[in-house]
Design a binder for these strands. Structure first.
Lengths: 205, 205, 205, 205
DNA sequence: CGATAAGCGAGACGGTACGTCAAGTCTTATA
DNA sequence: TATAAGACTTGACGTACCGTCTCGCTTATCG
């Protein structure tokens, strides 16, 4: 009862995830079948199901493996750090395979446990790096004190996700730098004037 | 042989989409099976397949139905217009069911035609409204001339999609207003200083 | 709702039972797998399961097919009729495959419905022929009036089953004739004497 | 290396057969899985397989345990002895669980060794008792000299098996007595007449 | 007494079959 | 020709046993 029994063969874990990886690469998420994974890994179906309860968990595990360590850049230069953080963020999802991310989320949404796992292992970690970078900038006094951190993280992260997901525009370093720049500098030619006008029209403070 | 034979029963189109709608609402995208749709609509499977070639098109049709007319606000107040445009954008996807959007895209991605249809019918129209709002503001001279329209549309649109998709934070009117505000005003306490510093550190222009 | 829909392809019923038959012949009951049956019949597994809910029913159906019409001999000669009836009985099970009979019963025993079907389709019909033959003999006045019909049917039928089942002794025409003869004539050299003795010893009436 | 090592725990043998027994009783032969047996006996699967090589042997062992000593009645009264022998025979299989007997045979049939074991341990012993009883009667001069012993053993034994196996009629003491009686006395009202008639019709000797 | 050899519980392993379900196509009879 | 009904092929699903195989531990007997 302790923890007896034959220990699991760790080569199998690896072989299975390798197979998942290969199939994801070759034919994508939709066609990934547990049976094929097992066959490709030269492993029995039971051995797979003993480790992961369903396809979703399987892909989740593989993507988590790809995620690896997420680092927070800290050079003292806010503009550079943010751009770099965003680049890392983008690279994370590029190398993870953005096209697996969304169907996986969709599949996970039905089952709360799965969804939680998804959020905790794939969604949160890369966001944390961006948030940490912003925190550093805030401490350094480079950002306005009323900055809403969550909103800002979302604004930056969502842009990457959005473009990767829909693929309607590229996610280059240059583009990301422009996005950071424009977010920091603001779009308005004369923001106080805009606000005043809005105040007149709408009673905004 | 133009249109001989029995004409299609238009009640069926409606009934089917209603069934799709109900199932999407109740159990989500993943569990939506054509067989169930047909049964629920009290219609034969063949009648469904005669109208739409597969599940994806079926959901696509239902979401397009929900999309309706997209309007561009134009009050002369940039701050108000943008906030309103974003609210409309959010409402569009809220009522369309944000959780169906991304898995549908994922499913459509395999087939280029389907993907194109997806982009043209569901992705572009609501974006156009935001873009038009921004164009008006630009013409009005309220935005900096070097504003990258596509990047800005993406920044705003992505935020909405992102939050709806992952559900980690709310998409209220208030939140959107703050997002617009911060985008227009900029986050930097002293942007030129940041840029100078970056220039020294990294050789940025 | 009436009875519309595509009618079942009767070739499939045949092909499946043929496949069952072939497999039973070649490798026996235990190895008969629905999947193999389907493959051999060049038919989908679903088509099989649409017709029969499980392996047992499948074999049941095939054996019933083999059973065919059971006839009652009636020549006026009791000795001959009975021998012939028993030969028919034996041939029925020989050609049906006696080795499938008992494991099938075993498999059916768990499920009451299945068991009933088994009894009604495989067990009762051949017995009826023997019983009918005995009835004729009784009417003819060839048998003692106190003959227990059920007991006699069982005595004859069981012998056949027993030998076929355990295979420890042959079931030839000759053997059956001797069995019928000995049953009709009795084994005792002097039955009344035996009975008297038993009465003395044990108080039997 | 003769007999070094830890000796087998004899409680396990018992516990396993008890579990087999219980499962046979409760859900029958088909559902008897070694895994379940082990679990129920609170014993490891390996411990079971160390003792018996497969399910069949397992059940075989349990039934052999139930068989116990088979005795041959010898009171000098043929009618009584035979009835008693048959009662013993019936009781043997009743307490052994008749419904496990035939499917077990079926399962054993694939493997010749297993089949031999089956016949030698379960089939022959109770038959021997009946045969011995008949032999005594024959020596005593109570049976006709041309009595075919094997055929008679089969006739009696098969009746019991048949009824127990198919369960379509009871196997009471009373029924068995009537069977013995009718077998000894014969069914024919006038056997010579029947034979003569058959001789005329069929040329039977 | 310590080495050796086997027994033991736990459970992983490769297989094989199970019975279910959905996708998308096809076939009939009816309207 | 559209329709409802439902059969059809295909192929994945997740489950359950089979009989074998470690693993780390326990328990006898032998040298």
């Amino acid at each position: 009862m302790r923890q007896g029994g034959r220990p699991r063969d760790t080569h199998i874990d690896e072989a299975v995830l390798d197979a998942v990886s290969a199939i994801l690469e070759e034919t994508g998420y939709r066609t990934l079948a547990v049976e094929q994974v097992a066959k490709r890994a030269e492993v029995s179906k039971a051995a797979v199901y003993r480790r992961w309860p369903n396809r979703q968990s399987l892909v989740l595990a593989e993507l988590r493996r790809r995620l690896g360590r997420v680092v927070t850049p800290d050079t003292g230069c806010t503009l550079c750090d943010l751009t770099e953080a965003l680049n890392l963020f983008a690279r994370t999802f590029t190398c993870m395979g953005p096209e697996f991310f969304s169907p996986l989320l969709a599949d996970c949404s039905a089952d709360p446990d799965l969804r939680t796992t998804f959020m905790e292992t794939l969604f949160d970690p890369p966001r944390e790096a961006v948030r940490a970078t912003l925190s550093l900038a805030l401490e350094r006094g480079d950002l306005r004190e009323d900055t809403d951190l969550t909103l800002t993280v979302d604004t930056l992260a969502s842009l990457v996700h959005y473009r990767l997901l829909f693929g309607h525009a590229p996610v280059t370093e240059d583009e990301l730098e422009r996005a950071v720049t424009s977010l920091l500098s603001g779009l308005a030619r004369d923001f106080p004037a805009l606000r005043a006008k809005a105040g007149v029209t709408h009673g905004m403070a």
